[in-house]
């Protein structure tokens, strides 16, 4: 149930982000919801559950995105593994660190997509787009973190087994 709710929440946030960008024609204040979701799943969940959820979220992001098929999914999957690898060494309890991590995560995902595009298309001028548009937009990634982290944490807390207090018996 928790798994399903997490997926539905993630999917809803991704759809809302896509609609937000479409309706309000926003290109600078992108919340980067997908990297933020992956950030939570990589750092707060065990590798299997988080991995499956991350894979499905990455797939959904890939479906909703305009990049060539598989590119977004691959970038987010790599992001998940990178975060899992670094997770033990990250002191991410502080909000400021999390905000910084969200920016780094968004930039990482964008960079992977760029790399994939460079490999597949060989267009070097994409580097300019990355510098002018993609990287600056990552600065708004903490917004995505603010949207996703509390929601997913609440879902996890809801399904956490309650510890019994002896005095309440």
């Amino acid at each position: 149930m928790r798994f399903l709710l997490t997926l539905i929440t993630g999917l809803a946030l991704l759809i809302l982000e896509a609609a937000w960008v479409g309706v309000f024609d926003v290109d600078t204040l992108l919340p980067h919801v997908a990297p933020a979701l992956i950030l939570y799943l990589a750092l707060q969940k065990d590798v299997f559950e988080g991995g499956v959820e991350a894979a499905l979220i990455a797939w959904a992001a890939d479906l909703l995105g305009a990049a060539p098929p598989g590119m977004n999914a691959l970038a987010l999957t790599l992001l998940f593994f990178a975060l899992r690898a670094a997770g033990a060494r990250l002191a991410y309890r502080s909000l400021l660190v999390r905000a910084g991590l969200s920016i780094a995560a968004a930039a990482f995902a964008q960079a992977v997509v760029l790399l994939a595009l460079l490999v597949t298309l060989g267009e070097l001028r994409l580097l300019a787009s990355f510098g002018v548009a993609a990287l600056p937009s990552c600065l708004a990634a903490p917004l995505g973190l603010l949207l996703t982290w509390p929601l997913l944490a609440r879902i996890d807390a809801f399904f956490q087994p309650k510890t019994r207090n002896l005095l309440s018996e």
Partner: peptide, 20 residues
């Protein structure tokens, strides 16, 4: 876990290859 990791990496790569 290994299967998941492999699937997570292979499926997108496969998707990219098919698209190409």
């Amino acid at each position: 876990v290994h299967i998941l990791v492999a699937a997570m990496l292979l499926l997108p790569a496969l998707s990219m290859l098919l698209a190409r």
